[in-house]
């Protein structure tokens, strides 16, 4: 009896979280006049909404933009984060703890304070409407540095010493020795960073005006807010589906890593 209640509560819970997505998917394939009455699946399937959306907004291009931006940022965060994290955890130098405290401090600094000046900076550098403007301010991430610092601390000193004897430079130590031994940290930082930059909207809204350079969430936001969907609801939902698709697909395959990564990012705070 208890079990039945337990399972039905869990089931209701998961339906609450899943059903809206199912509805959205169904609605995006429904004929326009059916959407407002749709409960589950439409009576007939049509790709009309998708075709119209592809006609109206350069969503393919936006996908590529998002891909370029998110991958470059992720890559940069991994490289720079592990460089700084390594220096902070395994090397002795003056000012080390100062830098560490600065990093901790910036983590607590709300972005609202730097938003306007950063925008002006980007304008003055002439990086409005460029990937540079989207990418550069995000190449460094305090959380990533801290996570690498923590993880590198757990790696045995012998490994590093052995590499030094073999004549490895510090960079080689980081990327050849530490990286292969830090896969969980790399995966965690990678997933968090990629997801955060993939889903970022506010900054692209501010920096990018050229439709050809817009990221996917930005384009879909403007499409949903602006008039270009021409009041065709299905088209908006189709855009939302396309926007959700890549991350959901990645999630289905790497579910465990996603959940672990997000959980550990929360724990570190």
């Amino acid at each position: 009896m208890k079990k039945i209640i337990l399972y039905s509560v869990l089931l209701i819970g998961s339906i609450t979280f899943l059903y809206p997505f199912v509805w959205m998917l169904g609605a995006s394939f429904a004929p326009e006049n059916e959407i407002s009455n749709l409960v589950f699946l439409p009576s007939s399937f049509t790709f009309g909404s998708y075709l119209q959306m592809f006609e109206k907004i350069p969503i393919g291009k936006a996908f590529i933009n998002s891909m370029i931006v998110a991958s470059t940022i992720t890559f940069g965060v991994l490289v720079f984060g592990s460089m700084v994290g390594y220096a902070l955890s395994r090397l002795e130098f003056k000012g080390r703890s100062l830098i560490f405290y600065i990093i901790i401090f910036t983590m607590t600094l709300p972005f609202q304070i730097t938003l306007i000046p950063q925008y002006i900076l980007i304008v003055k550098f002439g990086w409005i409407d460029s990937y540079t403007g989207l990418i550069l301010p995000y190449l460094m991430n305090a959380l990533a540095i801290i996570m690498f610092r923590q993880y590198f601390k757990t790696i045995p000193q012998d490994l590093i010493d052995a590499a030094r004897i073999d004549g490895c430079g510090e960079l080689k130590i980081i990327f050849r020795i530490l990286w292969p031994n830090s896969i969980p940290a790399l995966v965690t930082v990678g997933i968090i960073t990629f997801m955060a930059s993939w889903n970022e909207v506010l900054w692209p809204l501010i920096v990018i005006r050229d439709e050809n350079l817009m990221t996917m969430p930005q384009l879909v936001t403007l499409f949903a807010v602006g008039g270009r969907a021409e009041s065709q609801l299905g088209v908006k939902l189709a855009a939302a589906v396309i926007l959700a698709l890549p991350i959901v697909a990645a999630y289905v395959f790497f579910q465990k890593y996603f959940i672990q990564s997000m959980a550990s990012s929360g724990m570190k705070e």
């Binding site: 889903n199 969430p217 879909v220 939902l237 939302a240």
Partner: peptide, 8 residues
């Protein structure tokens, strides 16, 4: 993405 959630 939050955008998807809000549209939905």
């Amino acid at each position: 993405s939050g955008v998807v959630v809000t549209i939905l």
